[in-house]
Design a protein around this nucleic acid. Structure first.
Lengths: 105, 105
DNA sequence: TCCTGTGCTACAATAAACGTAGCGATACGC
DNA sequence: GCGTATCGCTACGTTTATTGTAGCACAGGA
């Protein structure tokens, strides 16, 4: 059984697969919320404005399969080394978002 | 009439609004495809694996309203200064995606 | 035992995305 | 003028994704 294909990955261009994965709902948000501490599935749900557990679980499966997030029984969901590395690229987003929100009046 | 709310922006935290906007399908991809030249709506569609024009137009509306993309009659759709600035953060993603795809065998 | 919290799932309803087709407007050659 | 082509964009019916509510099995702790 072929492992679930990341949409848009047909081209074999990894960047497309990545953009697709991150473009699914709550993906970016999850990576963001796990940025500085592990969260249990329910804490994560609270952090994500009570998003439905169905999608969260689906996204967590995607992210775990992509080796960006892992589940550690003792503490909960957390970023893998790879996931943390990816998050580094998003760190400046916070400041950007502030400027962005001011400029779009 | 209040301008269309970006989902998840109820908290007033700009980062959430941004993550939500970028988390819609094709948002990231569009920003990516426009990275180094303007594209007409049809060229953009071709670049995005023939995605349906319905969503593309919807996303382009979102991105234009967010002041990340603009339509210049002579050349087509292109990143605004703000959009280009945002894209800077994604540039390293290309190399990351390469490593990522290798590590997930 | 009972209570609580964990990760996770079922299921019906809603919303988003898809695919195909086509619109009005504009710009060309003839 | 007349066809032809392209532009940005939209209608509409189908499929897929997401939502919201409820609840499962399991593992501690009291």
């Amino acid at each position: 059984m072929k492992k679930r294909n990341v949409r848009g990955s047909t081209s074999g261009r990894p960047i497309m697969a990545l953009l697709d994965l991150l473009g699914r709902r709550w993906s970016l948000r999850i990576l963001w919320e796990l940025r500085d501490q592990p969260l249990t599935s329910r804490a994560l749900r609270t952090a994500c404005d009570e998003a439905s557990p169905t999608v969260l679980q689906a996204r967590l499966s995607d992210l775990r399969e992509a080796n960006l997030v892992e589940l550690v029984p003792a503490s909960g969901y957390q970023l893998t080394t790879l996931g943390r590395e990816l998050h580094e690229h998003f760190l400046p987003l916070h400041r950007f978002a502030e400027r962005w929100s001011k400029q779009r009046a």
